[in-house]
Design a protein around this nucleic acid. Structure first.
Lengths: 322, 322
DNA sequence: GCTCCACTAGAATACGTATTCTTTAGATGC
DNA sequence: GCATCTAAAGAATACGTATTCTAGTGGAGC
């Protein structure tokens, strides 16, 4: 791998001159510029980003922290972020916390080690004050995506509002009792329940924290047995929804006649399921775009600025299952 | 962000001594070691990986190139790779080629820029001689995953064999005409067809290159109309299979009585579909493990060695759809 | 009491780049 | 024809680390 110094020797100029040519400075004689460029091309020169990052302060690296990249939603998000970053000349270091705070913590060290220019993070819990403390100590700009983190720039959809939308939709479709299934890492359930309470259906709402499908099935059966009235299940993500659909089929409960089902994230499979799955769609591309834009802005123009806290709104994709 | 030199000043020793302490060299007096360690801890020292990478030759970075991270299969693979890498003290730079050769090409520059220690790649086409040429010029160890690349270390499942397994299974279940739907980036179809040919069913096999669902639906209808005989569809991945199931439902074709369907990758949704989807399962965790192990071996003990070319075998997951 | 060795820690250097400072040569002004 | 200014390119330096080389100090051996 050829270096500037070597090119300098080959073309009988000094290394700084090579640097100037390769960085497009105009203060160098045309003939020399040509000679150097030709030599660089011939030897397929590629600058050493480590050296560049060491000397200047830009590494052109972005850290991306995600809870679970194998989750289709985050995979999609990561893809969009990677594309946006690349368009702006950045490469990304990916990290998967696997919902383990130890990993998340460990990642901050990686971020510091590589002098990453900025970080896009999906923190495990939005309220983890401890994590936020560590992040603040970092002198690297951080934008949280998908979850809100007070005091940090955050790009996220308003889960509470989404939950409320779901509630309104289900009521409008004539469902009268409700079951929420999910990990409550976010405000979906809060908004959902609050909205139902306001209209008087609060007491008829159950909440189940998903552990595994056996436990979920049992909870579902319990809930079904409690009343013959028409009800709906709000699943925290499309995978749970799929499992619910499967369980209902086995129990020979008709969807959406007797029980409605709605998912979250609007995974691509939803349009092909039987019945086609209603779901809440998050504007992934827009989130990725805004998050990266904000981060790059923080990088390019440092200095204190009010934290971004502009919740996007989700949209309902209504299909057969409700 | 504190540096060794600063710690050296604070503790009244030289920078090399700090380096020795922090790297666990034993040739330093206990009291000094204590002083330095305490100071480092107090100021939350984190080494500069760029400087380290510049001076020594190890960056502890691995490049990971993937065709489409939003595809559940690759997302899963990336997750496993990231975990394996992390366990060994490496971080990964992720790149998504999006099936675009230009991007793939561009990534090699990134790889060189950051002086990555090694690369795990899912090339777009296994046979792209051009890409292999570029890779060879790189003096970085590369292991291809999922696809075979002659002359490079490759960890992959034998798609031809998997295709043959599928053929045997479908025949055994009494299907007598066949339709393959997929991008033929790999040997699934080749093995499938060859296997059918050997038994005399070759002429009764159709092949459709997937473009979009409209085109696929038309192809499917054509194929159905050609004969009333019992047949099966072999889909290149589970998403295609899901779309096929949906189309068949709309056409009121019963599965698996009239038409069987089998997918590829054994995505987690398969167990919950209606009917539950048969599929071909690739040993993702094992692939990730072997690929990373091989790559680290190449990094730790350089020098020419015979290219790894040890195809793993896929396994059949038989469910209701066949 | 002198020599030699082992051990410890500092000095010097290299990695590849960008930048600041300095020199040189050529051009301009009078 | 001389002083001054401008442009171009080289010299020196810094970034943070690891390593190699060197110097000093104390103890062991005779």
């Amino acid at each position: 791998m050829i270096t500037m110094t070597e090119i300098a020797k080959l073309t009988h100029v000094s290394q700084p001159t090579v640097s100037r040519v390769l960085n497009g400075s105009m203060t160098v004689a045309p003939e020399i510029r040509e000679r150097v460029l030709a030599c660089a091309r011939e030897h397929d020169y590629q600058f050493n980003a480590l050296a560049k990052g060491l000397q200047g302060s830009k590494t052109k690296l972005l850290g991306v922290l995600v809870t679970d990249i194998s989750n289709g939603f985050f995979a999609d998000l990561a893809k969009r972020i990677e594309a946006e970053a690349r368009e702006n000349g950045y490469s990304i270091i990916l990290f998967n916390s696997d919902y383990n705070p130890r990993n998340e913590q460990e990642y901050l060290d990686v971020v510091r080690r590589y002098r990453v220019d900025g970080v896009l993070a999906v923190p495990i819990r939005e309220t983890s004050g401890e994590w936020r403390e560590y992040v603040k100590k970092l002198d690297v700009p951080v934008v949280t995506v998908t979850r809100r983190a007070k005091g940090l720039d955050s790009v996220y959809v308003d889960h509470a509002q989404a939950g409320a939308m779901v509630a309104a939709h289900l009521l409008e479709r004539g469902f009268r009792r409700f079951l929420f299934i999910g990990k409550d890492y976010d405000g979906k359930y809060v908004g959902f329940r609050r909205s139902l309470m306001e209209i008087g259906y609060g007491p008829r709402t159950a909440n189940v924290v998903y552990q595994d499908d056996v436990q979920m099935n049992r909870a579902l059966e319990d809930w079904l047995g409690q009343s013959p009235e028409r009800g709906a299940v709000f699943a925290g993500n499309d995978i749970y929804a799929l499992q619910v659909l499967d369980a209902l089929r086995r129990l020979e409960v008709s969807v959406p006649e007797r029980v409605g089902v709605i998912g979250f994230d609007d995974t691509s499979m939803g349009r092909y399921l039987n019945p086609r799955l209603s779901s809440v769609s998050q504007p992934i591309a827009r989130m990725a775009h805004e998050a990266v834009a904000r981060l790059l802005d923080r990088i390019d123009r440092p200095g204190p600025r009010e934290a971004l806290d502009d919740p996007l709104s989700a949209s309902l994709v209504i299909r057969e299952s409700t």
